[in-house]
Design a protein around this nucleic acid. Structure first.
Lengths: 192, 192
DNA sequence: TCAAACTCTTGATCTATATCAAGTTTTTAC
DNA sequence: GTAAAAACTTGATATAGATCAAGAGTTTGA
């Protein structure tokens, strides 16, 4: 499965052969079965994690047991809890697999070392962070300005592949509404 | 006013005297009067902007004329529209001054050049981006999981100084509720 | 300094979405 | 292959927060 990450690197970063090999030497392959946790609330997150196959969700659980999905991540994207990682504090988030999933992990020390050693890698990492931040801003914007129906249409438009592979309950939670409301919205919009 | 930025740099970045001076040589001082725009929807944002004094808000306007506040930024923080900057596309956001405000601007070309030239500066910029991303994640989390009252208490707790200097209408918008609702919540919580 | 323009508050009413409940379909796991 | 569990739908009802309206303070600017 490393080839998928290698291809990603080839596309996104300018690296010499030696640098590529150095990066690979620190990669840890990890497989998750559907429903398996990658991170549980209370644990400290210690990795930078790239998904080569599958899909995970990041969510919190409130006192009443309600789950609130913060994000979905699929193949060719990164996952983890940056706050827990940076501050080395217990995470408020859970991350688990929605499908059987394969990841490549780097311990944060190794990852930081690679960033310091390899400018091309560092640049790629920064570019990813920029994009993540922009995406988060847009999500905030949507949550403030859109109605439930608009949020759903916006979501489907932005991530067409997600609607089919992720259970509606989770999408509803991600959009900040109940599954019932999402079900009714889908019925409504299907008519049009 | 440059001293304020200089102090920030001294605290946050490891720089030689020469590097500090080089950074300063590209700084553009800008003053905004209350209500004055820094960025208007439709314009392309071209700077990295640091606030030395005052307060701005970043917001969108919907078709019905409703304003949705995405963020507040005060002295010792950065502002701008990263999406517009990165993609060089017209911004969906407005940024204007809530108080008379002073900023330091760097054109993005100069800023990028400084990042490339000066590793200590680059590291600082990345650290800021990390923190911004973490803050955005937490905001998403709060918007999904909290009630209106909890959102307000969380906001006051996190940014105690904001409640007194920013009009309630804008805070309400930032929290995703109407000014009336915020007014009632404040009345409620004052009792307790 | 005074009128116009905001800002905040409070009350009455409305509505989008939540909650509760029950039935149907789909998926999972032995 | 089948029973149990999970996911989705639909209807009835409830509610948090929105909207509308009007009055009291406060700020702004000629």
């Amino acid at each position: 499965m490393y080839e998928i990450f290698q291809k990603y690197l080839d596309e996104k970063a300018e690296l010499t052969q030696a640098e590529s090999e150095r990066i690979q030497s620190f990669a840890i392959i990890k497989k998750l079965r559907k429903r398996q946790y990658l991170l549980q609330e209370g644990d400290v997150w210690k990795y930078d994690a790239f998904i080569t196959q599958g899909c995970v969700r990041t969510y919190t659980v409130d006192e009443k047991g309600g789950e609130h999905v913060n994000s979905f991540s699929i193949e060719n994207w990164w996952t983890g809890d940056r706050e827990s990682l940076m501050l080395q504090q217990p995470s408020r988030f859970n991350i688990d697999a929605i499908e059987d999933t394969e990841l490549i992990l780097f311990t944060h020390e190794n990852f930081e070392m690679l960033c310091k050693e390899i400018p091309g890698f560092n640049n790629m990492v920064n570019a990813i962070l920029q994009r993540s931040f922009i995406a988060a801003q847009n999500r905030i914007q949507a949550s403030l300005a859109l109605t439930a129906e608009e949020k759903y249409l916006n979501f489907v438009n932005k991530y067409p592949s997600f609607a089919s592979r992720i259970p509606q309950t989770m999408i509803a939670s991600y959009l900040g509404m109940t599954p019932e409301t999402l079900s009714r919205i889908r019925k409504q919009t299907a008519k049009k």
